[in-house]
């Protein structure tokens, strides 16, 4: 008899799966879905306490393909942040996980994206970045590189939007970049994001095998494999678990996350401190200049108020309040009426 591994809440990995994907074979988005499943399983999250949200695009379809035991909302093109904002306010006990595309976020949705960050809406926000519009068949998105060539479309004459830089400027407290071809890192960063209180941005290069996977494209598998430069080796140790690996002294930076989990950043080639704001800015700039896919946790600031902190709401979710809490007394109405007569 084959044994299935169960996590701390007694679910196996299948408990986090969704319907089978209808995306293209080899699409980066599928690989990210798998890592969302793995991350939630690893963290033993209760699927009924997660809501998944998306906009419109191939990427935004993927909530159907993971977390089948979670409620979700496949909303409008570029407008998922607003729906997520309202949802999180109506029930602050739910963990929101958003999946978007580069078109969804950086083109039509850049406004809502920035305002979500400005409000620090507590949620994980993944951009499955392939530099094209997959679902509408291969037009340039706003993250396409200047000078990039697409078969049918021609050459892109405009500078790309860097969603990590946008997030940085908008004071996002958790900014990570990763590559769908580096599944372990994707998984660990998603786990880290899930333990963060505030908007956590994950810009994941996610190749579109159908429309933008030529080797010279910065959003292709081959380019990613050849140019990825991880900042560190990331491991998220959930709060209830022991740290199993023995690290050499000075080799690892340990960061405590909001829920008590520990993020272990093992040093690779360079010294990098993700809490250093100017270092993060320089890094993003230099990566662009050097045309390198620098991945890992780029910026972390755990000390910012979230939207929920400033709204000052009762502990019971607004969506679960009963009539007694919601409808003031008849006497109070009488008083108001008296003041108007």
């Amino acid at each position: 008899m084959a044994t299935t591994t169960l996590n701390l809440i007694g679910l196996d990995k299948a408990g986090y799966k969704g319907k089978s994907s209808t995306l293209c074979q080899g699409c980066g988005h599928n690989s990210i879905s798998s890592q969302i499943i793995a991350a939630c399983f690893d963290l033993s999250l209760d699927p009924s306490k997660i809501i998944k949200l998306s906009g419109i695009g191939c990427s935004s379809k993927s909530p159907a393909y993971f977390l089948g035991r979670s409620h979700g909302f496949n909303s409008l093109h570029g407008r998922m942040p607003s729906v997520a904002t309202g949802a999180v306010i109506a029930n602050h006990k739910l963990k929101a996980l958003g999946v978007s595309g580069d078109g969804d976020t950086a083109s039509i949705g850049i406004g809502q994206f920035i305002h979500m960050l400005r409000r620090n809406v507590p949620m994980v926000y993944i951009i499955e970045n392939n530099g094209v519009y997959g679902l509408t068949k291969g037009q340039f998105s706003a993250t396409a590189d200047k000078g990039q060539v697409l078969k049918k479309i021609g050459r892109n004459p405009f500078m790309p939007v860097d969603v990590c830089l946008e997030a940085f400027v908008a004071n996002c407290g958790f900014i990570a970049r990763s590559f769908a071809g580096d599944p372990r890192q994707v998984r660990e960063l998603i786990k880290a994001a899930l333990t963060f209180d505030g908007t956590a941005i994950l810009d994941i290069i996610s190749p579109c095998v159908t429309f933008n996977n030529r080797d010279e494209s910065t959003k292709s598998y081959v380019w990613g494999k050849g140019h990825e430069e991880p900042l560190h080796d990331v491991t998220l140790v959930p709060k209830r678990e022991e740290i199993e690996v023995d690290y050499e002294p000075g080799e690892v930076t340990e960061v405590e996350m909001h829920d008590g989990s520990r993020l272990m950043l093992k040093k690779l080639d360079r010294d990098y401190d993700p809490t250093d704001r100017m270092a993060a800015l320089a890094l993003l700039h230099q990566a662009h200049v050097d045309q390198l896919l620098v991945t890992g946790l780029i910026y972390l600031n755990r000390d910012q108020e979230t939207l929920l902190d400033v709204q000052g709401m009762v502990d019971t979710p607004l969506g679960a309040l009963d009539e007694k809490a919601l409808r003031p007394s008849p006497e109070s109405l009488k008083e108001i009426m008296a003041s108007m007569s």
């Binding site: 949200l53 909302f73 607003s82």
Partner: peptide, 12 residues
């Protein structure tokens, strides 16, 4: 309206 719809969906 997007926010209101998100909140309405969750039950507020």
């Amino acid at each position: 309206i997007g926010m209101a719809i998100g909140a309405g969906w969750v039950g507020a």
